[in-house]
Structure formats: structure tokens, C-alpha cells
Design a protein around this nucleic acid. Sequence first.
DNA 1: GGGATGCTTGGACAACATGTACGATCGGCG
DNA 2: CGCCGATCGTACATGTTGTCCAAGCATCCC
Lengths: 215, 215
Amino acid sequence: MPSVTRKSSSSRQARREAIVKQMLGVVEELLSEGESFTELSVERLIGSAGISRSTFYVYFEDKGTLLLALAEDVVQQLVGSAQAWWELPPTATKADVEAALRGTADVFREHAAIWSSLVDASSYDQKVRASFRAVVDNAAAGLAKHIKDGQKSGSVVAGLDPKRTAEWLTWMTERGLYQLLAEATDAETTKSVRAQADIVWNTLYAGAPSRAAAA
Amino acid sequence: MPSVTRKSSSSRQARREAIVKQMLGVVEELLSEGESFTELSVERLIGSAGISRSTFYVYFEDKGTLLLALAEDVVQQLVGSAQAWWELPPTATKADVEAALRGTADVFREHAAIWSSLVDASSYDQKVRASFRAVVDNAAAGLAKHIKDGQKSGSVVAGLDPKRTAEWLTWMTERGLYQLLAEATDAETTKSVRAQADIVWNTLYAGAPSRAAAA
DNA sequence: GGGATGCTTGGACAACATGTACGATCGGCG
DNA sequence: CGCCGATCGTACATGTTGTCCAAGCATCCC
């Protein structure tokens, strides 16, 4: 009876999405009260969401699975915003770099709670850790490519090790967003992002062949 | 009866140190088997250490307190090694910077397990988080001072925001050590530290007034 | 309307971890 | 020998996790 199966699964799917959406609100709410994701028990979550323990475990293997579902969207947005940086053309100015980084910072600040939760849970949940690493590794790879391409076109300093430079800068960004911008005001964000842009600019672009004259 | 009190407390102190030392071995041992500090239960710890549950709680409030005791030494060493960087003279070369960073990396690699545990526990233990932040903030302050002084003497690029640039670079270092060097080989460490040195060099020193000629 | 199907639910459960309490025991020291 | 501090085993109250099951409920089809 395929129709039954189809219906069932599509309903499950829809219901799951609804629950994920609801849980997103609940989790962000609870996190905004100052607790960390680690400290949130399934008990509390279902209590606030108004669903039963049993139902929770129908849709999520555990807290980690829930978090990954919640984070999907956020991660997509962050990765997307990060591309704005490493897809900058060779002629980009420092202001362009800063604007791109600002974009990522703004996306991050909107969803800082969820990202922080990913970081939290990475320390004890295998699945989350793997997923988190994959995201960052992917970002680093994108940046590494940007560096390599830039070196070819002369817009990036020669001699830098693309992969490893990208790794450091990527982790700097990850950690900086988390630690420096999660609770920053707009004004503070502006200053902080400017500093980040200075680092990136000086590291990658300032001494590049195609810019040798301007200093 | 002051003598009694004195004796008791000094004995407690000595015994505590012995236990801390023993626990350090146990924790590093268990962590080297691939588990995270978060996953280590007090149960396991006392089991491997051969002391009783009761005794454990005589000396440590909880797992977090234990960790802070274990980390004291490591943190001191790391902070000390970091000073080698920001106490570099204005005439330092890129090789000097790389050597200083290498020093920190080596210290870190020796005690990666404990540092990782601090990061882990920071996500759910208030005391650990506070202590951890204090260490990093302190490091950032030291680096900020180095930048400010360097700007005065002309050995560091003008126009950088000392505080915020230091924050980004400090978190970059923290996260990079943790993520890139914790399990790296010697060869990989060399390459990675070189990339880190390039970033630091280009950011802070390459375009500095006192170096304007050399490029 | 009647009945099958699948989803949600509450509650019970085993397993395990935490931090506390207490009485028994061991060992050194006067 | 006897005191005293430290350790120990054990028990306990509490809280969390993930599983399981039987009962209730809504929906859709016949």
C-alpha cells in the first residue's frame, strides 16, 4: 500500500518541520535567558515546547540531532555570507573586504545562540562535532582556494601557504565571532570587524604584487 | 589549639598536591584514549585513581574545580611562553616571531589534553569559563600593550586598533592551537606555525614605519 | 457510520551520574 | 595505649537519559 506509506511519511515530514520550527523558538528563548545548550535538559525543552518526552524521541535521536536540525538554516546562511569574502574580485578594496566580513558578522549576530550551541555541543557530541568541523573545514577550503587564485592573479601576497593560512584565518573568524561579537553592540561590532578586516587585508592583500605601488 | 589546626591544614595541603598530581596523570591517560573531559565521570576518575568517592569530594568541589587545579601549571607555562612573543624587541625579525610562536605551540602540544578540557568544560561550567576567559583576556591585554608600544616606537603598523587586533589574534591563536596543532606531527606543526607567523608578521610588522624600506 | 492506521501521549522503567551524609576503620603520634 | 585526622564503603535523594508500551485520538477510506 504505497499510498499509505507516502502519506504517512509526508505527514511525518511536515510534522517534523513544524516541531523543528517550534523547538527553534523554544531553544533560542531558553538560551537567551543565559543558560548554555549543554545545561538544557530534554526535560526542560519538551516542557517549554509542550510536547511529550515520547514525541521528542520520535523525531530526534537525542539533543544533538535536534541541534543539527536547528542549525541547518543558520549554517547555510553563514556559509553563504562567507562566500561574499572569498568571491571578491582581485580588484577589491579594503572597504570591500570589510563589508563582506561585516555581512558575516551580522548574520552571525542574528543567530549567535544557535552557533554557540554548536560550539558547546561539539565538545561532547560526536555527530555535532563532525558536522561542525565539516562546516569550518569547508569554509577553510573555500578561503584557501581564494588565496591560491589570488596568488595566481597577483592580488594576494605570494609565499603564503594557502591551506594553512586559510585554516588560521578561518578559525580566527569562527572564534572571534563567537567570543567577540556574540553580545557586542553595533558600534563595538563595527570597530571589531574593522580590526578583523585590517588583519585580513594586511595578511593577504597589502603586500600583493598587483598592489605593490599603493602602500 | 593552633598547632593542631596548622598541622592539619598543612597536611591537607600536601595531600591535596599529591592527589592533584596523581589526578593529572589519570586524566591525561583517560583523555589520551579519545574521550573528552565532559564524558569523563567522577566515577571513572576515582576508579582509575584508586581513591574513594568521598575522598574526591573532600578535595574538590566538583569536576570543574579539579580541572582548574590540574590546569594551573599548564596555564602558567602557556602564559609564560606567550610573553616571549609580545616582549620581542622592536628590531625583531620574522624568524624571531616564528620562533616565539613555535615556543607556545610546543608548550601547547605537550599539554593539549588539559587545554582541550578547559575549552570543553568552559561550555557548561561557570567557574571554568570565568577562569578560561580571564587567561585569554590577560593574554590579549599583553598583546595589546605590545602593539601599542610597537606603534610608538614605529615597529608596528600604525592605524591598527591595539585592543581589538590583539583580541582577534589571541583568539586565532587559542583556536588554532586547539584545532590545528593538538594532534599535529612535528612537520605539520612547523608549516602551520610558519603560516601563523606570516599572518602575524604581515598584520603587525610588515608595513611598519621602521620597516618601510624592507619589503 | 464503522474500522483501520498512524500519531501523540503519559507513565513506568532501567541505567547511570552527582553530591551529601555517616559510621567504621586505618595509621601515626604523643 | 588512646586520640585524632584521613580514608573508605555504603547508602541515599535527586535528576537525567533513552526505551517501551498501552491507551486515546484524529483522519481517511470503505
